[in-house]
Design a protein around this nucleic acid. Structure first.
Lengths: 136, 136
DNA sequence: CTTGACTCTGGACCACGCTCCAGGGTTTAG
DNA sequence: CTAAACCCTGGAGCGTGGTCCAGAGTCAAG
């Protein structure tokens, strides 16, 4: 369906025009067809791809990671060479991220639970935990 | 009771000398006393402060956040409220990230399940999981 | 006194992920 | 036809969080 201008595709993907061109330069988005005038022409698949990028970015993936995720799906279309290994590597990466965040979360959760919400800062467990002693 | 040089304080806090000076420029660390020669002189409280910064950073706080946390510690009456609120906000942010990562993880799991290393699929589950439709 | 390790300043530079700008050309509504 | 709104390119600039460098001075050991 779509034969969108860059402005339309940007609006549909809820990102800026500059960002669309930036992603093209960074090869996260394939170079689109051009009109005779030089205007870029996009389709629905580009909107999908840009939304994918936006969501993955919101999950904390670097653009480079996202590019490899996208490459992964291209491999998928082409017939799956080494796809499983790469997918599992990505999965391990995600698990590590989750574990890291959960560790962080437990630390902060405990601090909030212990925090009286009032009183002298000298007794604040958050500061105590952050400023605590270390071995060596 | 130290009277540490920048090298010593950096080593004790497990960060680089350049980073110590960088934190000073960014006002995360007060400008230290100087020897007649101009050498910076640090004390134990600086080591503590640098360790605080390192820990807070590991918990996901931006340097700017950390600077306000440190500033808050000056305001003993109000400090705890602000600190607790900031910590809780950070916690909510972390929870959201975990939830989204788990969603993505499920998508990738599905991809692995659907694609055991050979054969072809006509649809990418990652795109399905993350590139899904949006309102408008 | 010499040597080597350390420190000083200021500024350049890096990666990341945009964001904006100038100075053009194009498209479209009235 | 005109004017507004859009698009093009290339490159500069920005915020974050550092890292590295030159060219100079300082300190401690032998």
């Amino acid at each position: 369906m779509g034969a969108f201008t860059i402005g339309e595709v940007a609006r549909r993907a809820a990102i800026s025009i500059d960002t669309v061109r930036y992603y093209e330069r960074r090869h996260l988005l394939p170079a689109p067809a051009r009109r005779a005038s030089g205007y870029r022409q996009y389709g629905d698949e580009d909107v999908q791809r840009l939304r994918f990028i936006r969501r993955a970015k919101a999950l904390g993936f670097a653009l480079e990671d996202i590019r490899s995720l996208l490459d992964l799906s291209i491999d998928h279309e082409r017939g799956v060479h080494g796809l499983r290994a790469r997918t599992e590597a990505k999965l391990a990466d995600i698990d590590a991220r989750i574990a890291q965040l959960q560790k962080m979360r437990r630390g902060l959760r405990q601090l909030v639970a212990d925090c009286p919400g009032s009183g002298a800062l000298d007794h604040c467990p958050i500061l105590a935990a952050l400023g605590g002693k270390e071995p060596a």
